[in-house]
């Protein structure tokens, strides 16, 4: 449980740094609003993570394990992520008024800890496809919630009197570290 939280928290941190970065690392073109951009990233994750969880679980249990190729799971899962992410990008472009910027959006999604981490966790822990799918949906919801929280936190921090050396990424790292400390309280809450 806490390892899932930490994986997602690291993904949130990476996304927040990308979203709030000045200039060309922004995942959405022409968006200056941090919250709006976070909504876009959260929706993309909500679409991609459950799909990736289900597909990687199927791949692992139907192909890799019977063929005794389990050592291939990390590169194979990365390949699955690279299949899903461009499709999610196309869907996002069709559906959303704010347009993802190439290639920052694709890079952010595919290099995100939430994708590979949750896929590896569901493969290791979920006994059935349904459990893997639920783990994916749950972690996508958690990711979206945390990302939107972090975005609103950041919006407030913009108007706070943060000392100059701590502005932008440093204050985000400190905030995420504090949240991670709080999450460590979940350790042992659910016996796994």
């Amino acid at each position: 449980m806490s390892s899932l939280l930490l994986i997602i928290l690291s993904a949130v941190l990476l996304s927040m740094i990308a979203i709030t970065d000045e200039g060309r690392w922004r995942p959405f073109a022409n968006v200056t609003d941090v919250y709006q951009s976070a909504v876009g990233v959260a929706q993309a994750h909500a679409l991609a993570v459950p799909l990736i969880c289900a597909l990687t679980w199927l791949l692992s249990n139907a192909v890799l394990k019977p063929l005794e190729l389990s050592y291939l799971r990390t590169p194979a899962f990365v390949a699955v992520i690279l299949v899903i992410v461009p499709l999610v990008e196309v869907t996002a472009r069709r559906a959303r008024p704010i347009v993802p910027a190439n290639p920052a959006f694709t890079l952010l999604l595919s290099a995100n800890g939430a994708m590979l981490g949750v896929a590896l966790m569901s493969e290791a822990r979920a006994p059935s496809l349904w459990r893997a799918l639920w783990l994916g949906i749950g972690s996508a919801v958690l990711f979206s919630f945390l990302l939107l929280c972090a975005a609103t936190l950041y919006e407030r921090l913009r108007y706070a009197d943060v000392p100059k050396p701590f502005r932008h990424a440093p204050i985000l790292l400190i905030t995420a570290g504090l949240i991670a400390l709080a999450f460590m309280g979940f350790t042992g809450l659910i016996q796994e």
Partner: peptide, 16 residues
């Protein structure tokens, strides 16, 4: 297996 997965990934990104 890895070539098949890589080909799928290449197809998806070329589609995008």
């Amino acid at each position: 297996l890895m070539s098949a997965l890589a080909a799928l990934a290449a197809l998806a990104s070329s589609f995008a």
